[in-house]
């Protein structure tokens, strides 16, 4: 994968993305993506958990995709703000090498999580987390904690607590999605992905 910070292709891509958003959202201040430089990214610890259908899921199954990994719980009120954003991202970017994976940290398990998934119309995969999983990620001291993983399964960004806005996530996701396309010389860079997502 190309280093996203390489100026030749990535910088113009980021500029185009920023311009696209600035034009579409004239009243908001847009945050620039704050991704960890590619060479400094650490591998996301792999884990195996079950989803709401009982299927066994490994995080490494998602290798090759950009993943938004969200540690959350039904009792977490700030998480309620982000969930509709993630539903949108999943809907608009699912076919573009992107996936949202939610890891619920609810002690009461599927008895509370399944009804919540239905109530909130969550369209992305939810796994039931445990202490071991949390410890792999440094303990997950507070919720929500959201990570963005690049296509190689490395941690590109960590958001502890409620993110300031949806567009910040979208910038970062778009940059990660656009990285390979930019690297292969495809004309369909992050700006086009972002335009379709919005």
């Amino acid at each position: 994968m190309r280093h996203i910070g390489t100026p030749s292709l990535a910088a113009p891509l980021v500029a185009i993305v920023a311009l696209t958003i600035a034009c579409s959202q004239s009243t908001s201040v847009e945050a620039a993506p704050r991704l960890t430089p590619e060479k400094e990214r650490k591998p996301a610890p792999d884990f195996t958990l079950r989803d709401a259908n009982g299927a066994t899921v490994r995080l490494s199954d998602y290798r090759g995709k950009v993943v938004l990994l969200d540690f959350w719980a039904t009792w977490c009120t700030p998480c309620q703000v982000e969930i509709p954003w993630f539903v949108e991202f999943e809907q608009s970017l699912k076919g573009k090498g992107f996936a949202v994976v939610g890891v619920s940290m609810d002690e009461d398990g599927w008895d509370v999580v399944r009804p919540y998934i239905r109530k909130r119309g969550i369209n992305y995969r939810i796994l039931l987390g445990d202490d071991h999983t949390a410890e792999l990620y440094g303990g997950v001291e507070a919720l929500p904690t959201t990570l963005l993983l690049d296509r190689n399964g490395r941690i590109a960004a960590v958001h502890k607590g409620l993110a300031s806005d949806k567009d910040g996530f979208l910038h970062e996701i778009t940059e990660l999605l656009g990285a390979r396309r930019a690297g292969t010389g495809s004309a369909d860079g992050g700006n086009a992905i972002l335009a379709r997502a919005k």
């Binding site: 609810d106 599927w110 445990d130 303990g139 001291e141």
Partner: peptide, 14 residues
Amino acid sequence: MAATQFSRGQSSAA
């Protein structure tokens, strides 16, 4: 069923 207390988060939560 998961049993989660996010063990390393104990200090800040307490």
